[in-house]
C-alpha cells in the first residue's frame, strides 16, 4: 500500500484513540471530584499534567479550574491535543484516505466530528457532562467496531491497529504515572473512603475498575500498577496493547515471532520481550516513575522507527501539515 495512505490510517487511529482517552480522563475526574470533600478543585491541575500540555495551559489559562480545564482539553482549537482538535485531525487524515477505508468508517468519523464540533459551539453541551463524554467514548468504540467489521484486515487495517495500540499504551502509562504519585502521598485519606475513591478513579480513567476487581478483588496500589502495566488480558493494559501491536506488526512485515527485518519491528519486539519477562517487583525496584518514563521514551522511539521505516520513503515532504505527538 502507499506509504502516505499507511501513515494517514495510522494517525487517524491514533487521534481517535487520543480523543477517547482525553474524554475518559475528564469523565473520571468529574466523578471523583463529586465524591470528594469540598475544596478539591486542585484535582483539575493533575488532569492537565496527564496530557503533558501543562505549560501551554498555564500560559494561556493561568490556574486550573473545572471550566478552564474542560475548555482546554475538550474544545480548544488551539490545543492540538484537545478532543475537538484530535477529531478534526483524524477526520482530515480520513478524508485523505477516504477511497481506501470503508464508507461506513468515513461516515461514522465524519458524524462523530460534526457532533463534537456542534457541541463546542453549544453553551449547553456541558449541562450533562457525563453523557457528553460517554458519547465520545462510545463513538470511538463504534468507530473501532465499524472498522473491525467493514474494512479488510489487510495491511492498512494493521497499520491502524498499531497506531491505536501505541497511543493507548502511551495514554495508560501517562495516567498511571501522574496519578500514582499524586495518590501515594495523600496520607490524609489513607484508610478513609476517599482512599478507594481516588484509586477507583485511576482505574476508571482506564475503564479498568470492574476488570481490576474481578482480577484482584480489592484496591491495592501495587496490584493496580501491576494490572495497568503488565496484565496480558485487559485491553488497555500496556503489556496487552504492545502484544496486539506486535501481532499487527508481524502481519505487516511477514516476519515470524522473535525475528526482525527493520528498525520498527525490532524496536517493538524488543520492548515487548522486555515486558514479557518483567514483574511488578522489578518495576518498583527501578521506581515506577523511572520505569514509565523510560517506557514512554521507548514508545516515542517506536513511533519514530515506524515513521522512518514505512512512511518516509520520499526525499521531501512538501506539505506543511504538522502532527502533534
Amino acid at each position: 500500500m502507499l506509504s502516505r495512505v499507511a501513515e494517514s490510517i495510522y494517525w487517524m487511529n491514533r487521534y481517535i484513540e487520543r480523543a477517547e482517552n482525553v474524554a475518559r480522563f475528564i469523565d473520571a475526574n468529574f466523578h471523583m471530584i463529586l465524591d470528594l470533600p469540598r475544596g478539591a478543585s486542585e484535582q483539575w491541575q493533575p488532569l492537565v499534567n496527564t496530557t503533558g500540555d501543562h505549560e501551554v495551559f498555564a500560559e494561556r489559562y493561568g490556574s486550573a479550574s473545572r471550566d478552564k480545564v474542560i475548555e482546554f482539553l475538550a474544545f480548544d482549537r488551539e490545543n492540538p491535543n484537545s478532543i475537538l482538535s484530535c477529531l478534526r485531525a483524524a477526520r482530515e487524515n480520513a478524508r485523505s484516505v477516504r477511497e481506501y477505508i470503508s464508507s461506513e468508517m468515513w461516515q461514522q468519523l465524519n458524524t462523530f466530528y460534526l457532533t463534537v464540533n456542534d457541541a463546542a459551539r453549544d453553551s449547553h453541551s456541558m449541562d450533562l457532562p457525563h453523557q457528553f463524554f460517554v458519547d465520545i467514548m462510545m463513538s470511538s468504540h463504534l468507530f473501532v467496531g465499524v472498522t473491525e467489521s467493514t474494512m479488510s484486515h489487510g495491511e492498512g487495517w494493521h497499520f491502524g491497529r498499531v497506531g491505536r495500540m501505541i497511543e493507548r499504551a502511551d495514554k495508560t502509562s501517562r495516567i498511571l504515572d501522574v496519578k500514582y504519585y499524586i495518590l501515594l502521598p495523600s496520607v490524609d485519606y489513607i484508610g478513609t473512603p476517599f482512599d478507594s475513591i481516588l484509586w477507583g478513579a485511576l482505574l476508571r480513567s482506564a475503564s479498568a475498575f470492574e476488570m481490576y476487581l474481578k482480577r484482584h478483588g480489592r484496591i491495592d496500589p501495587e496490584k493496580i500498577a501491576d494490572f495497568l502495566l503488565l496484565d496480558t488480558k485487559f485491553p488497555r493494559a500496556i503489556h496487552s496493547c504492545l502484544n496486539t501491536a506486535e501481532i499487527s506488526m508481524r502481519n505487516i512485515t511477514g516476519q515470524p515471532r522473535g525475528t526482525f527485518c527493520n528498525r520498527a519491528d525490532r524496536t517493538l519486539g524488543k520492548l515487548l520481550a522486555d515486558m514479557d519477562y518483567t514483574t511488578i517487583e522489578d518495576v518498583l525496584d527501578t521506581g515506577l516513575h523511572e520505569y514509565l518514563d523510560q517506557l514512554q521514551s521507548r514508545l516515542n522511539q517506536l513511533g519514530g522507527a515506524i515513521n522512518d521505516t514505512f512512511f518516509t520513503l520520499r526525499p521531501v515532504a512538501p506539505t506543511g501539515e504538522g502532527r502533534a505527538e
Binding site: L2, R4, V97, E99, Y100, S103, R314, P318
Partner: peptide, 13 residues
C-alpha cells in the same frame, strides 16, 4: 478511486 477500487495517488507518491 473508491468506486473503481483503485489507488488514489498524489504527485509525492
Amino acid at each position: 478511486a473508491q468506486q473503481m477500487g483503485v489507488q488514489l495517488v498524489e504527485g509525492r507518491d
